[in-house]
Simulated assay, not measured.
Amino acid sequence: MRIRTVLNDLVPEALGVTDSHDHLFFRSAVLPGQELDDEAAAVAEVRAFADAGGQAIVQWTPHGLNRQASLLPGISTSTGVSIVAATGLHRREHYQDGYVDKVQDHLAEIFVRELTTGIGDTPVRAGLIKVAGGFHVLDGHAELVMRAAAEAHHATNAPIAIHHELGSAADAVLDLLVDELDVHPAAVILGHLNRFPDHRVHLELARRGAWLAFDGPSRANNATDPRLTDCLAALIDAGYAERLLLGGDTTTARARAATGEGPGMPYLLTHLRPRITRHFGADIADAVFRSNPARAFATDWRA
């Protein structure tokens, strides 16, 4: 089992304290003027995360949204923080008009190439597939992309991470990926669940064997931030602590800690980790930030 980073493949235990969902570079058509495209700002944010004890960042920025793959190895080397890059495709509205139409017939091929050969003209290989669902349902675009993701997963064993619009439709994602397309639930990471803070829904998802990712606090989902601890408590009390992941999901320049208004990546370790330790104990905090990511992002790569 290995975790594919932008520098090399790591044994899982080498990953260390991990931000399981974040963005160093990101450009979306729905967030004009808030692009993450400044290399110096990205380096400053990673160093601030490292100063707080961080050792790895999983960047969920998918194909076509300014991943800056050529810069990631240098950032990883200069900061000492491991970085996992993503392939995949986001919701249609994040792209400029016409972009999705150009690539939608070749998605599985693109995903496999970026997982096994490199992103663009770089040798940097992606370590996961990031896709997105719709609001409470899977629209045609979401289903098309997820079918391509499942095909790429079966070719490579890469994990699949899902953006759930406002935290919804995770059950529909598992119905498609796991029940219909035969992706093992342990290869599926359900993101943004804090944006739909229904404990019963979370428990139903946990019983199906997928990873449960809670992203924030961040400016993208601050309305549900006060519910985060309660959501985690319900799952921990039910015995699912070993299925939980946490990430910062910094999607705008304003949300960075080092160069913006925050809370940014360091907040996970300066504020959330101490809070989790106080409420649930050091072992749970270690699982959420260290041992769980080491298992969630590791796989026996086929290429």
Results as ranks from 00 to 15, higher is better:
1 M>P: 05
2 R>G: 11
2 R>M: 12
3 I>Q: 07
3 I>K: 07
8 N>P: 00
11 V>M: 15
14 A>P: 07
15 L>F: 06
16 G>M: 00
16 G>P: 15
20 S>H: 06
26 F>M: 00
27 R>I: 15
30 V>D: 12
31 L>P: 06
32 P>W: 10
33 G>K: 02
33 G>V: 03
34 Q>T: 06
39 E>Q: 11
39 E>I: 01
39 E>G: 04
41 A>I: 11
41 A>T: 14
42 A>H: 11
45 E>T: 11
47 R>V: 09
50 A>D: 00
52 A>S: 05
52 A>F: 04
53 G>I: 06
53 G>C: 00
55 Q>A: 14
56 A>K: 04
56 A>Q: 04
59 Q>C: 05
60 W>V: 05
61 T>C: 07
65 L>A: 01
66 N>P: 03
66 N>H: 15
67 R>E: 12
67 R>W: 03
71 L>N: 04
73 P>L: 01
74 G>M: 10
75 I>R: 07
76 S>N: 11
76 S>E: 10
81 V>E: 02
83 I>F: 14
84 V>K: 08
84 V>E: 09
84 V>N: 10
87 T>L: 13
87 T>W: 06
90 H>G: 01
92 R>H: 14
95 Y>K: 13
96 Q>W: 15
98 G>N: 08
99 Y>T: 14
100 V>M: 15
102 K>L: 08
104 Q>N: 14
106 H>P: 00
107 L>N: 03
107 L>C: 07
114 E>N: 10
115 L>K: 07
118 G>E: 02
118 G>H: 00
120 G>R: 07
121 D>M: 09
121 D>A: 15
123 P>Q: 01
127 G>N: 13
127 G>K: 03
135 F>D: 04
136 H>C: 06
136 H>Q: 08
137 V>E: 04
142 A>T: 04
144 L>I: 06
145 V>D: 06
153 H>G: 08
158 A>N: 08
158 A>I: 05
161 A>N: 00
161 A>R: 02
163 H>S: 13
164 H>D: 01
164 H>F: 09
165 E>Y: 04
168 S>Q: 06
171 D>L: 11
171 D>Y: 02
173 V>P: 11
180 E>Y: 05
182 D>T: 09
182 D>S: 13
183 V>S: 08
183 V>Y: 07
190 L>H: 03
190 L>D: 05
192 H>W: 11
192 H>N: 01
196 F>G: 00
200 R>K: 01
201 V>M: 07
202 H>D: 10
204 E>H: 03
205 L>D: 03
208 R>V: 10
209 G>E: 01
211 W>H: 03
213 A>E: 09
213 A>K: 09
214 F>Y: 13
219 R>Y: 10
219 R>A: 02
219 R>F: 07
222 N>E: 13
223 A>P: 08
225 D>P: 08
228 L>K: 13
230 D>E: 10
230 D>M: 11
230 D>H: 02
232 L>E: 13
237 D>M: 08
240 Y>N: 08
247 G>M: 12
248 G>W: 00
248 G>M: 12
251 T>G: 07
253 A>P: 12
256 R>S: 13
256 R>Q: 11
257 A>S: 10
260 G>W: 06
262 G>I: 04
263 P>H: 06
264 G>S: 02
268 L>A: 07
269 L>Q: 02
271 H>D: 02
272 L>W: 10
272 L>K: 13
275 R>L: 14
276 I>C: 02
288 V>K: 02
295 R>P: 12
295 R>L: 07
296 A>I: 01
296 A>V: 14
301 W>K: 02
303 A>V: 14
